[in-house]
Every structure is written in C-alpha cells, then in structure tokens.
Amino acid sequence: MERAGSVAYGTITSEIRPGDGTPLEPRLVVTRRTRSDLWFRGTAYSAGTVVLLVLGLIGLFLALQSWPALHYMGLRFLTTPAWVPQSQHGHPASFGIGVAGIGTVIVAVIALVVAVPFSFGAALFISEYAPRTLLGVLPFKSALTSVVDLMAAVPSIIYGLWGLLVLEPHMIGLSRWMSDHLGFIPILKVPRGDSIYTGSFFIGGVLVGIMLLPIVTSLSREIFSLTPVAEREAALSLGASRARVIRDVVLPFGKGGLVGAVMLGLGRALGEAIAVATVISLSFVHNWHIVSPGANSIPALIADLFGSGGKLGREGMLAAGLVLFVFTLVVNTLASVVVGRTRARTR
C-alpha cells in the first residue's frame, strides 16, 4: 500500500492484461521491492511497534503487580482517604487515593489557570509580534524559542528546590491577601484562622503552572504558526490591525489545536511528582481550602511513600500508579487526537 504522492521504490512493472486489447482497460501496477528494502521497512516497522509494545507492557505489568492490593480494597481504593497499608492497633489495613486523586486534579487545575493565559500571550508574542531579528543581526525570534525550550529542559527537582526556598516565601503574602480579601469565596477561606500558608495546594499548583509555561507556550506557538498565510494576508489587506488578525484569523483557526495544547499541558500537570512533592506538606484529610496547608496528589504520594508499608503498601502504590497511568493516557491520547486533527487540516 503506497500513500498517494509518495515515491515508489523498487521495480515497477505494469502488465497489460490479456484480452481484446482495448486501451481503456486499467493496467495493473505492481511494485516489487528489493530484499534490502523489505528488511529496511521491516526494521522501521518493528521500531514503530516497540512504542505500542512498551505502552502495553506498562499497563499490563502495573495491573498484574497491583492486583492483590486492588483485590484487597476493591472499589474502596478510589474513595478511601487514608494510606495505612499495614494493620495498626487492631485496625485492618486500609488505603486508597480518595484524597490524592482529587488533589491531583486540584493541583492540575490551578496549574492550568496560572499557565494558560501567560502561555497563550507569550506564544502570540513569539509568532505575531516578535521581530525576526533585533537590530538587523540578532536572531530574536529563534532566540526566544530557544529560551522557551531551555525552560522546558530545566529539571523538575530544580523547580522544586527553587519553589521551596524562593517561591514559597513570596507566595505567602499573596496567599494571605487572597484569604483576607477574597475569603468570601469558600475555597479561598482559611479555616481555624491558620496563619501559615505553606505547603498548600495553591503553592504546588502555581509551581506546576510555572513548569507548564514552556510546554504550553511551545505547543501553542506551533499551532499559531500553522495559520495559513493567505488568510492572514487577506485580513491585513482588508485593513485589519494585528489585533484583529489575531482575533479573527489566528485564534479561530487554532481553536482545536489550542484545546489540544491545553490538554497536553493538563496531562503533564497531572503527572508531575518531584516538584509537587518538594513543596507540599502531604495530608490525608480532604482540604478544600486551597491556600491553607495540607495537600496531596498521586505522583507526590508515590514519590514520598513508595517502598513503605510492606508488600501490600508497595502493591497499593503500583495500583495508584496504574490509576495515574490510565488517567494521563486517556487525557493525552484525546489531546493527541485533537492536535493531530488540526495539523492534518492544514496540510
């Protein structure tokens, strides 16, 4: 099977079918590949299937290894807030991701709220406003793209270290201001008059949001740059200002792709372990007050407590990992399909 427009390699023969010799009879085109090409294509094909295989193996092994814990807890695994994998003081072992699962989503939502507006703005700046060169020689646009890529390469443990020692002290003021002046919004209230604002969902979410900035920026910059030149220039020639071009051409065109970019960002935010684990103080009580101390998320839980609590505890951790895996896989696959559709439309 050859894709339309692709190059046909190998020996191409077209045989004229025996018959009455009418020239209108369609001819059968046969491509016979050389043996080396068959090897080459086979190798490439198997490399492609390795990806599918690895993904399948991850799901399979996590499911197999975590089965005893899932069997022990049943569906309560999804709702139990505590994590006590060994029986204590006569209470049977009981563990689950009731708090961690919701916490993962809270952290991710805060992160997206922080990251998305800035990322879209910065992506628009790079694709629409930034001059190609500065003073005629310095490659400004590609330098900005490189800086964004570099931000994506900064290790999450460094984000965590910085978040713990620099960002958190700065966020306390903001957290206090929010709870003082916006306390009428239930989630921003601080119960019991807590005056410490450290280790909260808010700080974890903001830190993950900062980590998402380069990822969402580079994805949405790519989407913006796919805007067809003809439409853009048509709008300009009708007298539209750049703001109007962005509003009426660039954004409507990239809508689907932007949704995909945000969802890929969501997938990253759901899976961030190290930075979250570094700044939050792990808690196993439902905490709806995002600026007050006490937070939890599945990846942070695994990073902090993996290996503790004996065999059942370990299997429970693998089960939590399985839930995280399935969750992020669904989000990422949907995002990938959406982004792929936008890309396909431009070609």
Partner: peptide
C-alpha cells in the same frame, strides 16, 4: 503509532 507517541511524551516520569 503517532497518536501513542504523542500521548507517551506526556507519560508521567514517576510511572
């Protein structure tokens, strides 16, 4: 494969 590769690029490192 393309869809899965994109999805896998968001695989949580901890997983």
């Amino acid at each position: 494969v393309r869809v899965i590769v994109t999805a896998m690029s968001g695989l949580p490192a901890i997983v």
